[in-house]
Amino acid sequence: MVTIDLTTPPAPPTTFLDGMARRLALTLPELRVVADLAGGAPLPFDLADDGSVPGRGSLSGRLGQSRGSVEDSAYTDALGTLHDPHDTLRRRGLVGDDGPDAGLVGAVGLLATPRLALDIDVAAGATQVKAWHRQDGGAVASLSTCDGIVFELAWFPVEQWTTELARVTAVPEDLRLAASHVPALLDVPYALADSVGEALRSGRSDLVPVLVGQGEGTVLGDGAELGDADAAAALSAVHSESRGRLRILAAEVSERATASVGVVSWVLLKDGWHSLTPHHDDGARVAIARVDPDDLATELAPVLAQVGLREGTT
């Protein structure tokens, strides 16, 4: 049983370089070549059988809705304009006569053989990013992309993981934050939150007051019970203000036949990120709480415990 503490600030680095992650931008063809040089290490997403355009259930699907034929063609054309990956890797000094860069191969190898895996999906405004974080022992490797063509590969000591996770929740500069109609802590029956969302998606906002009035269970705002009008406004705002979402799937990778999976879900509202935490208290409920970007590591700690890892000193 390993111990990972994501809630205690990392120790100050002894040198400037110790406190930095090493990052490289790699195109998809370059990434595939490096994976081949690393002994055929599998990447954390699927490629089409011919190794070119991702298909259904693969990277294409992971980055959002399925591409139409026109978008598939544009994706293929974009890959076709890239230079030969063997040449570009050599010109960049990442592959030499004695083989590929050792750190690069080690990072790709860690992506394929981790002890702990985090699959991260973030959408904010028009931007969507898919990232994979893989950890084993004192090292972490991460891979991320927003278009399936160019990837950022990074590797760093596990003590710096908290800092790297904070990068995941950075709100794009073009999304300006403003006041929200959602309380800092909104606690609602899950069925009510779901039915209100369905009504709004169907264009039946007139049904929201009826659903709130007839719903079972109380709606709490910052610990106090809300009246029907305030509850309807707050629940409507949760759905109407949504500008993005974050989901992290965490799993321990081991020799066990089955491995549990933990989930962290956030939604981006007008005033920033809010966590979504289901719980059972007089029925199924969900707590929607205002969080800071730096809170992600703290939110992950109980999830890591859930999948079989101890969260250190928390």
Rank of each mutant, 00 (worst) to 15 (best):
D84W: 06
D84C: 14
D84N: 14
D84L: 10
P85K: 09
P85L: 09
H86G: 04
T88A: 15
G93I: 10
G93Y: 04
G93H: 04
L94W: 03
D97C: 03
D98G: 03
G99A: 13
P100G: 15
L104E: 01
G106Y: 04
G109W: 08
G109Q: 10
L111Q: 12
A112I: 00
P114C: 10
R115Y: 08
L116R: 06
A117W: 07
D119I: 11
I120G: 07
D121P: 02
D121M: 03
V122T: 10
A124T: 13
A124L: 08
G125M: 12
G125C: 09
A126R: 12
A126N: 09
T127S: 00
Q128N: 08
K130D: 12
A131M: 12
Q135S: 11
D136R: 15
A139C: 11
A139Q: 15
A141F: 01
A141G: 00
A141D: 02
S142E: 06
L143F: 02
T145F: 12
C146H: 06
F151S: 00
F151M: 00
L153W: 00
W155T: 07
W155S: 13
P157A: 07
E159W: 05
W161R: 14
W161G: 09
T162C: 07
R167Q: 12
R167T: 13
